[in-house]
Amino acid sequence: MAQFSVNPLRFDPYKNFKFRVRWDGRYVAGVSKVGALKRTTEVVEHREGGDPSSSRKSPGRSKYEAITLERGVTHDVEFERWANKVWNFGAGLGAETSLSDFRKDIIIELYNEAGQLAKAWKVFRCWVSELQALPELDANANAIAIETLKLENEGWERDLDVVEPAEPSFNEPQ
């Protein structure tokens, strides 16, 4: 059965600048950039002995690329706290890694221009493989200090419970 759009008149694609990231049931403050969600499936080539000299192709393993989150440096410690669950320097022998909760599921939400939730993705079993706590500092620059978190993950799926919103109209009543 075909699923019809709530807003069949929308032809414009969604913009990439209205989004939020959530983990542990809370929105993460100040995230200004989220890397692409990318899945690659390996190609398995095979050929039977009686086939002509061309190969057949079938899907193999799928891999999910790491996702990078960026935000301006603030006093919020969520990036560092999560990264320290994978490796906490100085925690003592046998206590450097938190095996019980170093993985988290995250949610990436995309909003339309009116600020309504339009699409969302669930990213599964993420863990921090890289933390850049402070960028290169430059006294001659005019820029924001950005911290970066690189999240390995084991897959993602679109949240199908999020449906296209009916966009508001600003027409005057008749």
Rank of each mutant, 00 (worst) to 15 (best):
residue 2 A to R: 09
residue 2 A to S: 14
residue 2 A to P: 07
residue 3 Q to F: 12
residue 4 F to I: 13
residue 5 S to W: 02
residue 7 N to M: 12
residue 7 N to C: 09
residue 8 P to H: 01
residue 10 R to H: 07
residue 11 F to V: 14
residue 13 P to I: 09
residue 17 F to N: 13
residue 20 R to Y: 02
residue 20 R to V: 01
residue 21 V to F: 01
residue 22 R to W: 08
residue 23 W to P: 05
residue 27 Y to M: 13
residue 28 V to T: 04
residue 32 S to Q: 11
residue 33 K to M: 13
residue 35 G to N: 04
residue 35 G to H: 00
residue 35 G to M: 02
residue 39 R to C: 13
residue 40 T to R: 06
residue 44 V to L: 08
residue 50 G to C: 10
residue 50 G to I: 09
residue 57 K to Y: 10
residue 61 R to G: 08
residue 64 Y to Q: 05
residue 64 Y to A: 09
residue 66 A to M: 01
residue 67 I to W: 08
residue 67 I to A: 01
residue 68 T to C: 06
residue 71 R to M: 08
residue 75 H to I: 15
residue 77 V to F: 12
residue 77 V to H: 10
residue 81 R to I: 03
residue 82 W to G: 02
residue 82 W to T: 10
residue 88 N to L: 08
residue 89 F to L: 15
residue 91 A to E: 10
residue 92 G to D: 05
residue 93 L to Y: 14
residue 93 L to F: 12
residue 95 A to N: 15
residue 95 A to Q: 14
residue 99 L to F: 14
residue 99 L to C: 03
residue 101 D to M: 01
residue 112 N to K: 03
residue 116 Q to D: 11
residue 118 A to F: 11
residue 119 K to R: 14
residue 124 F to I: 01
residue 127 W to P: 02
residue 127 W to R: 07
residue 128 V to M: 03
residue 132 Q to I: 15
residue 135 P to E: 03
residue 138 D to R: 07
residue 142 N to M: 12
residue 143 A to R: 13
residue 144 I to M: 14
residue 145 A to F: 05
residue 146 I to P: 00
residue 148 T to W: 00
residue 149 L to F: 03
residue 152 E to G: 12
residue 154 E to A: 11
residue 162 V to I: 11
residue 163 V to C: 01
residue 164 E to T: 02
residue 167 E to M: 06
residue 167 E to V: 06
residue 169 S to W: 07
residue 173 P to T: 05
